[in-house]
Design a protein around this nucleic acid. Structure first.
Length: 179
DNA sequence: TATTAGTTCACTTATATACATGACGACT
DNA sequence: AGTCGTCATGTATATAAGTGAACTAATA
């Protein structure tokens, strides 16, 4: 079973913004230090997902743990900017999910060195002295898998949850054939 | 050779995973 | 003073975004 732990989504309002003015008006939830980074950070509550807004009107939502949460945050963001008269209508030009980060478990300990050969050396990177996880790039898939000796797995880089689930299903089958 | 143009990269944010190292407080 | 547990940081992965710096390439 694949569990989503982080979703990255991006969108565009289609208009340029005066971040200085917006940050001043929304100072309770905004954080803007153009000397440090050009984006303005918006967080509705502590530990809530982060919205990064740019001068160009483009924005990124990070830290959601479901597609639904990303979309509801987008709604809240658009409503806020509409109420503040930053935008005329609570609408964006476009919005889409860019990356799903998921965790999963193979429920068995793994010999990563042996698995390196089994998965195909050309598709993996494994340098335990640099990082304890094995990095696996399945052929033809847009996601990347990190495998750990405990059997825990990270799947990242997918634009849909289905793609991540497919990768995990294939991985489960491949690993069971190898062991 | 000097100037300009174009490309590429690090920066930042979230998040799980794990392994090493260093710092720090508490306890013996 | 020595040991122990806890905590932080850095290592690596994906992805969007804007900015500045570093770099390469081309033209005058």
């Amino acid at each position: 079973m694949v569990e989503v732990v982080n979703v990255v989504a991006s969108g565009s309002l289609g208009i340029d913004l005066d971040l200085e003015a917006v940050a001043k008006e929304a100072r309770d939830i905004a954080n803007f230090n153009p000397n440090k980074y050009p984006g303005m950070y918006l967080r509705f509550e502590e530990d809530a997902p982060l919205i990064t807004v740019y001068r160009t009107g483009k924005f990124i939502i990070t830290g959601s743990d479901s597609e639904e949460e990303s979309y509801s945050l987008r709604e809240r963001f658009l409503n806020l900017f509409s109420d503040m008269d930053v935008i005329e209508e609570p609408e964006d030009e476009w919005f889409s999910i860019q990356n799903y980060v998921c965790t999963a478990e193979l429920r068995q300990n793994l010999n990563l060195t042996a698995l390196s050969i089994g998965l195909g050396l050309e598709k993996i990177e494994y340098e335990p002295e640099q990082f304890p996880g094995l990095i696996y790039r399945p052929e033809g898939a847009d996601g990347v898998v990190l495998l750990f000796a405990t059997g825990k797995v990270i799947i990242t880089g997918c634009q849909t949850l289905e793609a991540a689930e497919d990768i995990f299903a294939d991985l489960t089958e491949t690993v069971s054939e190898l062991l």
